[in-house]
Nucleic acid binder design. Structure first.
Lengths: 148, 148
DNA sequence: CAGTATCCCTCAAGATACTG
DNA sequence: CAGTATCTTGAGGGATACTG
């Protein structure tokens, strides 16, 4: 990052976003968070990431205001990491990555995990529906749960 | 990547997408490509990336079928890199990153670059318009040109 | 101009042991 | 269980010189 502009001098919003969440793990943590994962150990098992790296990424995501720490809902003494409103705003990015990947990175018939919109109880569509003007309709974030 | 699954064993489309384009430079190259950048030197100047890294990323993007090489349109002996259909499919991801960044990563009033939709001649909106059901409307890719 | 070849260095990441 | 501390490795990335 010596050569890249400091984030606060970078005029391109895409670049700032990529600087913040464009690493190997952050977006997958966010994906899991959309999927309802909340606890350190669950993230760790889901991702298979080293504990120290996970701790670092969680801290950065909390510092960035994407995740918030809360007391565990199950009465244990530990913390949970849940998406803030800002973090929930990443939903279109995750969905777009998912849909592009489904369409272009899987062979026909090859199985992949899907997301269920818990409001409509339907899977997030493989492709974004087209509007009349050619724009695409991105599902809203309600709550989502993975099915494999 | 020792611990991460090989791409062809990874069942999550988000993870496959992130594996492919979730590095520091690939998405910014794609962003520039949407912006009409086509030549090695122009990418290099725009991004400030080392030439060997740029060459590597361009090669990987071509191998992945996201960019295609063509003979230069200006008659010179060189090549140009243009988005394939698959690459154009990344538009919603770039737009989503842009809009999230505009909304959450810039102070009020702070200036940032914008994209002009050359079909409508209007800037890509700061926030995705909401549909009645709470889903969001992602602009179509026609052609786009940066304005700072 | 459009790359390739080399060298070097930093940091991300993995492994593992330890602590409250 | 939820982390922290420490060590090691390797890949990513920068600088630069070189080539067709």
């Amino acid at each position: 990052m010596t050569i890249r502009k400091a984030t606060d001098e970078e005029p391109c919003p895409v670049a700032r976003s990529v600087d913040l969440i464009g690493d190997r793990w952050s977006l997958l943590i966010v994906r899991d968070a959309f999927d309802g994962v909340r606890r350190f150990g669950d993230f760790q098992r889901s991702l298979g990431v080293a504990r120290n790296i996970l701790a670092d990424r969680l801290r950065k995501l909390v510092d960035a205001g994407i995740l918030e720490m809360r007391d565990a809902s199950d009465g244990t003494a530990y913390q949970e990491y849940v998406l803030s409103t800002k973090g929930e705003g990443l939903f279109p990015i995750v969905v777009a990555l998912r849909q592009w990947g489904e369409l272009h990175l899987f062979a026909r018939g090859e199985r992949h995990s899907v997301l269920i919109d818990t409001r409509t109880r339907k899977p997030i569509p493989r492709m974004t529906p087209q509007a009349k003007d050619g724009s695409t309709l991105m599902p809203a974030f309600t709550e989502v749960r993975k099915v494999t």
